[in-house]
Amino acid sequence: MNNQTIEKLRSLRLGAMARLHLEHVQQNRFGEMTCDEYLSLLTDHQWEDRENAKIDRLLKQAAFRQNASVADISYSGDRNLDRNMFARLATLDFISRKENIIVCGASGTGKSYLCQALGHQACMTGTRTLYAVTARIFKKLRLSKVDGTYLKELEKLTKVDLLILDDFGLQAFDIQDRETLMDIIDDRHAKRSTIISSQIPVSAWYEVIGGEGTIADAILDRIVNSSHRIDLKGQSLRKGILKQE
């Protein structure tokens, strides 16, 4: 009967429950548990297994470059990173409010790590997240216009609950990049949250986007006005790592 039960659990795709039940049968570890307690034990085990699988899937789909963690963030005085403010952001309330985050700072100050730490935190709570280098996502969307999949690729970006655009503004924008950025931001505005990191200060973004002023104004209005701002300071963290090595 136990073998039949285990096979039925497996056929119902309740593999974790089946494995735990098999362990208890083989080792006779039922103890003094009531039927309700044992059922609760099996159910909790299956639920935790599926949640862990979901998190693993979200982390893989997010395509992070670093295994960043909120717990490992440095708040040294010269970074200009307020612990209380970042802790509030790490609760991810900004996602439920459909707000954005802008992280600026010189190369090596840890912008990407901060963004990915928040992204990792989002995945842990079941939030669909995607990390992308801005120039690469533009290139991918440019190619999608050639093969006719542009709207499909754009829809994928729209459905992601948290989109992280890293290294924003490192390359000059042409007319296609401006239109692509406008499409991304406009589709996500007041619907989803976006985190943008850049070496370029926000005050210079208008010139970076370039082109007709109307498009730049529309983009910045949708990004900046609904964003939390982090301006990192200090020396490159990479230099510190090299010195330690």
Score class of each variant (00 low, 15 high):
109 T>K: 09
194 T>V: 10
166 D>Y: 02
41 L>N: 00
99 E>C: 10
211 G>Q: 10
155 E>H: 11
132 A>V: 09
42 L>V: 04
15 G>T: 14
158 T>N: 03
147 D>G: 06
171 Q>H: 12
124 M>L: 14
82 D>W: 11
141 L>H: 01
221 D>E: 13
70 V>Q: 03
173 F>P: 08
127 T>W: 10
85 M>N: 13
226 S>H: 15
179 E>L: 03
199 Q>G: 08
192 R>A: 10
25 V>T: 01
38 Y>N: 04
11 S>R: 12
24 H>R: 13
236 S>Q: 08
199 Q>S: 05
71 A>L: 10
139 K>E: 08
122 A>N: 14
190 A>L: 11
71 A>R: 14
42 L>W: 12
160 V>K: 04
66 Q>Y: 12
237 L>Q: 09
170 L>D: 02
26 Q>C: 07
59 L>C: 06
155 E>C: 10
210 G>A: 14
21 H>Q: 07
30 F>V: 13
23 E>N: 11
58 L>E: 00
90 A>D: 13
212 E>R: 05
202 V>E: 13
106 A>L: 09
55 I>N: 01
243 K>V: 08
148 G>A: 13
145 K>P: 01
132 A>P: 04
163 L>W: 04
66 Q>M: 14
179 E>K: 11
125 T>G: 11
222 R>V: 04
191 K>S: 11
95 I>A: 07
14 L>W: 02
104 C>S: 15
178 R>S: 02
69 S>I: 04
4 Q>K: 15
131 Y>I: 00
172 A>N: 15
20 L>M: 12
90 A>R: 03
151 L>K: 13
81 L>P: 04
68 A>G: 06
19 R>V: 11
42 L>P: 02
161 D>Y: 03
3 N>I: 08
62 A>I: 14
204 A>R: 13
116 Q>W: 02
114 L>Q: 02
131 Y>S: 05
86 F>D: 01
166 D>K: 01
148 G>Q: 15
157 L>W: 09
133 V>R: 15
181 L>S: 00
82 D>S: 06
115 C>D: 06
169 G>I: 02
86 F>W: 05
174 D>A: 08
170 L>P: 05
117 A>L: 04
96 S>T: 12
31 G>F: 04
77 G>P: 00
22 L>P: 00
47 W>E: 11
194 T>F: 10
140 K>T: 08
89 L>F: 08
207 E>F: 00
144 S>L: 05
205 W>D: 08
164 I>T: 01
152 K>Q: 13
245 E>I: 13
29 R>N: 14
59 L>P: 02
108 G>W: 03
27 Q>V: 03
177 D>M: 08
203 S>A: 15
4 Q>F: 15
28 N>I: 07
157 L>D: 05
141 L>T: 09
161 D>H: 11
194 T>R: 04
41 L>F: 14
84 N>F: 11
206 Y>S: 09
197 S>G: 10
14 L>K: 00
159 K>D: 11
114 L>T: 02
18 A>Y: 03
137 I>F: 01
216 A>N: 05
165 L>D: 03
45 H>I: 07
156 K>L: 10
171 Q>F: 07
155 E>F: 06
26 Q>D: 12
89 L>A: 02
86 F>S: 00
87 A>P: 05
200 I>W: 03
232 L>G: 03
233 K>R: 15
117 A>H: 03
39 L>R: 09
50 R>E: 13
184 I>V: 14
150 Y>P: 02
88 R>G: 15
11 S>C: 06
153 E>F: 05
4 Q>H: 13
56 D>G: 03
179 E>F: 06
232 L>H: 07
